[in-house]
């Protein structure tokens, strides 16, 4: 079967891969590029574990075809920290115990980062609605919401 050559920028670095027409961006990231931080929880856009930012838009990587990513700029969990300096959201997730098993965590962090880039002072309700498509079965969400609010406050310098 013929594959398409896809050229993208992932976490600031040029990245190329080959994709069959039906391959999802999620499978391409995990299996072709080797970035397994983006998780598959459902494969149907319900759980948000595969949240990535494509051209500044938060999406589920399982609902994007890899071939659609030609020319796109993609951010994944692997690009959230700068070198060995954690993003404030990452630090606050650890500090607030906002993760238990940690499987949903990459998706939450990418989604929360996308929120804070658009709205640096969200209300709790705004955080909860923005993250409604990220499912966590462990925490009950309370500590996640607190961590996001606290990270936002820190990033505002509050």
């Amino acid at each position: 079967m013929s594959k398409t050559h896809v050229t993208t920028t992932i976490n600031g670095e040029p990245a190329e891969f080959l994709a069959e027409a039906g391959l999802s961006l999620l499978d391409a990231l995990r299996d072709e590029v080797g970035l397994t931080g983006t998780k598959e929880g459902c494969g149907s856009g319900d759980c948000g574990a595969c949240s990535v930012i494509v051209d500044d838009r938060l999406v589920c990587a399982c609902l994007v075809l890899a071939v659609e990513a030609e020319g796109a700029t993609i951010q994944t969990i692997e690009g959230v920290a700068t070198g060995d300096t954690l993003h404030p959201l990452q630090r606050k997730f650890i500090e607030h115990a906002a993760l238990q098993c940690g499987f949903c965590t990459p998706g939450f962090l990418v989604a929360a980062k996308s929120l804070l880039e658009k709205n640096n002072n969200p209300t709790e309700t705004e955080v909860r609605f923005w993250l409604a498509g990220n499912l966590c079965r462990c925490t009950g969400y309370d500590k996640i919401v607190r961590a996001v609010m606290d990270a936002a406050a820190e990033m505002r310098g509050a």
Binding site: G45, G48, S51, L58, V59, C60, A111, L115, L131, G133
Partner: peptide, 9 residues
């Protein structure tokens, strides 16, 4: 329609 992620697409 769906989540933030779905609304992006």
């Amino acid at each position: 329609i769906g989540s933030t992620q779905v609304q992006g697409r």
